[in-house]
Computed example of a mutant assay.
Amino acid sequence: MFRTTTHYKYWIFDDEDELYRRRQEANHRFIRDNITLINVKPDEVPKHFLTMAEEVALVNYYLSLLRDFCRRFNPPIPKYVTSTSIQYFKRFYLNNSVMEHHPKHLIVTCVYLAAKIEEFNVTMDQFVKNVKGDREKAAEIVLNNELLLLHKINYQLIIWHPYRSIEGFLIDIKTRCKSSSSNQDPERYRQHIDTFIDQCFLTDAFFLLCPNQLALLAIIYAADKFGESMDEYLQILFGDNSSNEIAFLHKWMISML
C-alpha cells in the first residue's frame, strides 16, 4: 500500500545525489534572483549569501529547536505529530532556501499544520501559549505561512511513519522467535528504538528509506545495544534472500550512526 502513496512517489529518493541537487538548485536559484538587487559581483557571492552547506547546517539547527518545542508542548504532543512536523519542515527546505523563508517562522507553522493533519485537537489560543514572546504575532505568523507551507510541499500531507511497523515487528519477533535464547523480550528495546528514530530525524534517512525499513533498522540497532543479533529473525523474515537484506540493513545502520 505504501508504494501507492504520495509519500513514496514524491518523497522517497533513490540516492543522496538527488537531495544534493535539489538543495543546490534552491540555493543557486535564490542567489540568481537576488544578486542583481544588491549589486554583488559574482566573485563576492560568498561574502553576501549562504552556501548550501551553511543552509543545511541552519536547517538542522532549527530542526533541533522544533523538536524541543514539541517536547515542551502542553498538552503533550504525540510522537506522530512531532514526526509529521519534522518531515514537513525537511520537505519544505529540500526545495527552498532559508535565505528566502526564515526557519523560525516555519517551525511553528509545521507543528500547527501537523497537529491538524494528525487530528491532535488544539486551538490557536492553546497553541500560542507554548510560544515564547508575542503570542499574537506568533498566531499571525502561523496563519500567514500555512498556505505557503501547503503550497511548497505540494499539498502532500499524509506522512507514513515507522511506528506502526515497529509494533508489528515486535509482535512478530515475540511470535516467531520464542525458542531463541535471545530476543525473548523485545519490549526491552523500546528506549533504544526511540533513540534511533530520533537520530534519523537529523539525517536524510526519511528521504531514502521506507518506514518499514527504518523500523527494522531501529530494532536491529536496539538489539545490538543489548549485544544481541537479529540475524535469526531476518532469516525467517526474508528467507532465501536474507543474506542480501541483512547486508543491506547492516550497511545502512553503520552509515547512519
Rank of each mutant, 00 (worst) to 15 (best):
198 D>G: 06
38 I>E: 11
255 S>N: 15
161 H>S: 07
189 Y>W: 10
257 L>G: 12
40 V>C: 03
209 L>S: 03
212 N>E: 14
11 W>T: 06
211 P>D: 00
169 F>G: 01
168 G>S: 08
81 V>Y: 08
36 T>L: 11
196 F>I: 04
5 T>I: 02
57 A>V: 05
229 S>Y: 08
167 E>Y: 05
222 A>L: 10
186 P>Q: 00
164 R>I: 15
93 Y>R: 07
201 F>I: 05
109 T>M: 04
60 N>C: 02
161 H>N: 04
80 Y>D: 12
115 A>N: 03
111 V>K: 01
27 N>W: 01
211 P>V: 03
37 L>T: 12
152 K>C: 03
36 T>I: 09
4 T>C: 02
209 L>W: 03
45 V>W: 04
72 R>W: 07
48 H>W: 14
234 L>E: 08
122 V>Q: 00
137 K>Q: 11
232 E>R: 09
227 G>P: 13
168 G>I: 13
148 L>H: 07
118 E>T: 07
32 R>S: 09
44 E>H: 08
206 F>E: 10
143 L>H: 11
79 K>A: 07
195 T>H: 08
151 H>D: 15
75 P>R: 01
236 I>S: 03
71 R>V: 05
28 H>S: 02
179 S>N: 15
152 K>L: 04
47 K>C: 09
175 T>C: 11
43 D>S: 10
115 A>Y: 02
83 S>Q: 14
203 T>A: 00
200 C>S: 04
243 S>V: 12
81 V>C: 06
164 R>A: 08
181 S>H: 13
231 D>G: 04
67 R>F: 08
146 E>I: 09
90 K>V: 02
16 E>N: 02
223 A>R: 07
251 K>C: 09
191 Q>W: 14
40 V>Q: 01
184 Q>S: 01
22 R>V: 00
77 I>C: 08
11 W>Y: 07
49 F>K: 02
182 S>K: 13
168 G>Q: 09
157 L>Q: 13
225 K>M: 09
7 H>K: 10
218 A>F: 09
53 A>E: 15
228 E>S: 04
42 P>C: 00
53 A>V: 06
222 A>Q: 04
240 D>F: 09
226 F>R: 10
14 D>E: 15
169 F>W: 06
104 K>T: 13
186 P>A: 00
175 T>F: 11
101 H>M: 02
130 N>E: 04
14 D>N: 11
20 Y>D: 04
211 P>F: 00
139 A>H: 05
151 H>Y: 13
124 M>T: 10
200 C>M: 07
125 D>G: 05
41 K>Y: 13
141 I>Y: 06
18 E>K: 00
56 V>I: 06
118 E>K: 07
254 I>R: 11
1 M>E: 15
169 F>D: 03
3 R>M: 13
7 H>A: 05
40 V>R: 00
245 E>N: 14
215 A>S: 06
17 D>V: 00
14 D>P: 08
249 L>T: 07
62 Y>R: 06
129 K>M: 06
202 L>Q: 14
110 C>T: 12
102 H>Q: 14
208 L>G: 02
20 Y>V: 00
248 F>W: 11
199 Q>N: 13
207 F>T: 04
152 K>Q: 13
18 E>W: 00
36 T>F: 10
125 D>C: 01
30 F>N: 06
136 E>T: 13
8 Y>T: 06
153 I>P: 12
195 T>N: 13
147 L>T: 14
109 T>Q: 06
135 R>H: 11
10 Y>I: 05
62 Y>L: 01
237 L>G: 04
228 E>T: 05
234 L>T: 09
155 Y>L: 03
